[in-house]
């Protein structure tokens, strides 16, 4: 198991054990993490599962696909260089974990 840490805008942190390969969005929904809306259910269609990935963890993740890139132009909170859609990022195998910051707004 790896740990996903979700940092809320108010600084609250929730760390959850997750199996490698599960999406960061899926783990958030299943554990009732605040601020991940995921309206389209993980299809990179709605940009409501936007997160900011900790800069140090960004390198562990595969490059984003065109779909995700296009959707990130439409997020409710500003897009940053470390913005990703949590439905498109999976918990990396052989990793201690990953830390993401939940944005102020998703819609």
């Amino acid at each position: 198991m790896s740990k996903i840490s979700y940092i809320q805008p108010d600084g609250n942190v929730l760390a959850i054990d997750a199996a490698p390969g599960t999406s960061v969005m899926h783990v958030a929904l299943a554990n009732d993490v605040l601020g991940i809306v995921a309206e389209c259910g993980g299809n990179a269609m709605c940009a409501t599962c936007h997160v900011y990935v900790d800069a140090g963890d960004l390198v562990q993740l595969p490059e984003m696909e065109g779909e995700e890139d296009a959707m990130l132009d439409c997020t409710a909170s500003p897009r940053e260089p470390n913005s990703r859609l949590s439905c498109q990022i999976n918990v990396p195998a052989e990793s201690a974990g990953i830390t993401v910051r939940v944005p102020e707004r998703q819609v």
């Binding site: 990179a44 269609m45 065109g66 779909e67 890139d69 296009a70 959707m71 132009d73 439409c74």
Partner: peptide, 10 residues
Amino acid sequence: QPGAHMLARR
């Protein structure tokens, strides 16, 4: 073409 789709919505 998700980029075109998003542009279309806007």
